[in-house]
Nucleic acid binder design. Sequence first.
DNA 1: ACGACGACTTTTGTATACAAAAATAATGTA
DNA 2: TACATTATTTTTGTATACAAAAGTCGTCGT
Lengths: 228, 228
Amino acid sequence: MGAGAADGRRRAGNAEVVERLRSMIMVGEYEPWGRLVEEQLARSLGVSRTPVRQALTRLEAEGLVEIVPNKGAVVRGFGMEDVWDVYDLRALLEGHAARRAAGRITKKEFERLRAVAAEMEAVEGRFSDRQEETRWLVARNQEFHGGIVEAGRNRRLRGLLDRTVELPLVFKAFYWYTPEERQVSNHHHRQLLRSLEAGDGERAEIVMREHVYEGRDTVIRALEEGRE
Amino acid sequence: MGAGAADGRRRAGNAEVVERLRSMIMVGEYEPWGRLVEEQLARSLGVSRTPVRQALTRLEAEGLVEIVPNKGAVVRGFGMEDVWDVYDLRALLEGHAARRAAGRITKKEFERLRAVAAEMEAVEGRFSDRQEETRWLVARNQEFHGGIVEAGRNRRLRGLLDRTVELPLVFKAFYWYTPEERQVSNHHHRQLLRSLEAGDGERAEIVMREHVYEGRDTVIRALEEGRE
DNA sequence: ACGACGACTTTTGTATACAAAAATAATGTA
DNA sequence: TACATTATTTTTGTATACAAAAGTCGTCGT
């Protein structure tokens, strides 16, 4: 099932409205700080304003949009400051998760992580469309990192990270990764797997923090160079 | 101002609906896992279902309620597992904030923290109503901890913590604090102030983590002993 | 030309109406 | 009586209607 354009026939349920809006914002379909007019969104999604408003409040809580009372919702943009803040927290939270995961991950979970990491390494020449490839990579990456968080056995941590990982940023990062930067990222994934397999929580945390900081630096380079 | 019955006259704005619902849930006015029927809430708040639904989505994002599609919202309850998870994260996040704050806090911010801590120590015999006193203490405590987070200069951290600090838990903790437990808490606050004043981030983090863990243990004791 | 004021348009916020789903009560059957 | 099945009621989800606020544009006066 394609997540493409609105087919006009189907009535989207509330959960789907949230999903579609999130995806559109994530891939940059709406400009940062651009206004999100409720009726426009409603029409383009084939629903009334009611579920749209709900979705917007939801997305505000997730940090993807900003709502000013009596003025409306805008796509949340970000500057350098935000990049530093977000990655500071990701390093903290994901590092913590990795440390906890080391002693708790099951064989099955570990094998899944290894498989995902392997798939990511074998992405070369799998897609023709760059944007599609990026979306796939981001999804896999989320599965990898989410799997580690899951293995960390703190049920609250997952939700917290979902609200911290700035999807547009991550998308941008993956979109602009150079082959070298990808290699570094994959290398970190392998290191992470080794640490987890050895049950070395301390090292897992260190590697994870390094991994996150690498991602941050990629984003910063991309922003500074103005890559497109 | 009492948060008692609806006065029937005033029309509450959306922000106020969220506020009032949050407060009611925080002080345990609604049973954990108890259903929150939209029309009931709407009537008791003197508004229609529309703003109530919005408020519920908001509170779900904050983690205070849980919404199951087509079934409705319930007050999110918590068990022992949740207590461990939540305080694990609070220790991590607030410890991090404290470390960062040490090198960044301004004189003015610091003095405010000191004043708040002093007020908390002088609470004895200030209130006649226990619940009111608790509410006041929780508010002060939030100001103290929030101030440290603020001084940590990571704009995302505040929002994250708001979603991590389980208000009903904190309320319970303060409600059941014994005089000894209060003393310990105040002592930690003083230690924290000293560390911040000295610019010793490492020690601030250690003290903060200890402080959070003390709070956790209080809650656990309260739950196990079934204090009321 | 520039800025203040006011009519008009757009957009948000809330209430209400109705459809769909779930929960509950009632009925029939073994 | 116990259980399955079917009405009935309750509750949620969505659409629409209207009121309030914000934004826009044109006019007028200096």
